[in-house]
Every structure is written in structure tokens, then in C-alpha cells.
């Protein structure tokens, strides 16, 4: 899933200060699951804006709506009436949803209400970890299902660096060493010999490094 966290309310309140009619738009997908931008958070955000505005005495009409999926045009139609009535939209969707809104409703500004953090999984309630960078050339088959690109702080291909101790990364005691996990799992599957092979430099052209990516599939185009 795409993991996000809500921007500080003070930041959101400041961003909408010039506007009288505000729509806070939640998304029913990933950000609902990671408790950053679903219906509950949209209502909380709207309430916070309203309380802040009361103090200034400035006029405000704040409404909320949560669409099923902000990252696809067809799901945005249900919001048309409220969007067109608003001076500004605060989207609590990920960066993809926010941009989809700005394309679909080009006349209204949609501002970000969350910081999109990473693609990852909820390890346990309240803890999410990053595990895919979308590099466009998956190596998981070579690394027993643990990604060295996302899980190693240095995205190394040929094994751990010299900064790993007790299974932890030098970057933080809160961060597991991805390569430590890979090596342990390789030992378990008796695959450590795979690591002896020298991997050549990675082709990063398939990642964002190659420029913004676009995928065209003739077989499914209408």
C-alpha cells in the first residue's frame, strides 16, 4: 500500500487561510487503511480548520467528502458538485490522488493535506515499513524475497556494507539491516552461494532516475 501521514494541522490551516469555501476530500483506499486520509481524518481536519477560523472570525464554509479512490478520474465525478462550489480542496489522498484531482478539476486548486511517505506494509498496528521503491526491475527472486534496494539504506546489490551490527543499520537503531535479513534467510534456504556471484551495476534507467515513467500497453488500450 501507499503509506502517508497527515500534514501538521497548523500547516493545513495556514494553507487554506485565504479561502472561504474549503472542501476536505478523503480517499477510501490506502490512506484510509493507514489512518492518514480517510473519512475520519477528513472530518477531524475540517473540524480543526473550523475551530481555527472561529478564532479569526473570518468567513468559512467547510465541507467533507470521501471518495472511494482519488487516483482514478472515474471515482472523482461523485465529488463534482462539492468541488465546483469550493474555493479550494484539501486532499488527504496520496500524492497520486492529489494530482489526479488537479488534472480532473483544473479550475480548482487541490492542496496536499498529507505527506506521502512510501510504499510499504503495516508491520503491526501503528507501525509501517517501506519495502518497495518501484525501481522497475525486480530483484526479489535473487534475494530470497527481501528487497536490497528498498531495505538497505544504501541500496547495495552485492551484500551488506561495513556499518551493520547486531542486525541493525548504521542509519538508525530503529532500522533493521536489510542485508542481514537477506543473509539469514539465504542460510535458512541454503542459498548463500547465490551471493558469491558478483552482480553488475544496476540499470537505474527503469527507475525514476530514467525520468518520469509512463507505461503504455497496446493490448489493453481502448
Amino acid at each position: 500500500m501507499i503509506v502517508a501521514e497527515r500534514k501538521p494541522l497548523t500547516e493545513i490551516i495556514k494553507a487554506v487561510a485565504p479561502f472561504a469555501k474549503v472542501l476536505v476530500l478523503g480517499c477510501g483506499e490506502c490512506v484510509t487503511v493507514c489512518m492518514a486520509g480517510g473519512d475520519k481524518e477528513a472530518k477531524e481536519t475540517a473540524a480543526a480548520i473550523a475551530i481555527a477560523r472561529k478564532k479569526t472570525g473570518q468567513e468559512l464554509v467547510v465541507k467533507t467528502l470521501t471518495v472511494e479512490r482519488q487516483c482514478e478520474f472515474e471515482y472523482l465525478e461523485s465529488a463534482r458538485k462539492l468541488v465546483e462550489e469550493a474555493d479550494v480542496v484539501v486532499s488527504l489522498a496520496c500524492g497520486v490522488g492529489i494530482q489526479t484531482m488537479n488534472i480532473h478539476y483544473a479550475k480548482v486548486q487541490t492542496l496536499p493535506g498529507v505527506n506521502t511517505t512510501f510504499m510499504g506494509l503495516p508491520l503491526q498496528q501503528g507501525i509501517w515499513v517501506e519495502n518497495c521503491l518501484g525501481c522497475g526491475n525486480c530483484v526479489l527472486e535473487e534475494t530470497v524475497g527481501i528487497c536490497p534496494i528498498a531495505r538497505c539504506s544504501k541500496s547495495m546489490l552485492n551484500g551488506p556494507c561495513g556499518g551493520s551490527q547486531d542486525g541493525l543499520c548504521e542509519v538508525s537503531k530503529e532500522t533493521e539491516c536489510g542485508w542481514h535479513l537477506i543473509v539469514e534467510r539465504m542460510i535458512k534456504f541454503d542459498k548463500l552461494s547465490v551471493l558469491s556471484e558478483v552482480k553488475p551495476p544496476k540499470d537505474w534507467a527503469t527507475s525514476h532516475s530514467g525520468g518520469p515513467r509512463k507505461m503504455v500497453r497496446e493490448d489493453v488500450k481502448l
Binding site: 551488506p160 561495513g162 551490527q165 542481514h180 543473509v183 548463500l192 551471493l195 558469491s196
Partner: peptide, 18 residues
């Protein structure tokens, strides 16, 4: 370079060989 004091220790000599 190689660091015999980093972990996983069992892998460090193999890493040198590599």
C-alpha cells in the same frame, strides 16, 4: 575494504572473497 567486526559475521569472509 572489509570489516570483520560488522554483521552478519558468518558472511564477512565470503564477502571478502567476492
Amino acid at each position: 575494504v572489509e570489516n570483520p567486526f560488522a554483521d552478519p559475521f558468518e558472511y564477512r569472509a565470503y564477502r571478502l572473497a567476492k
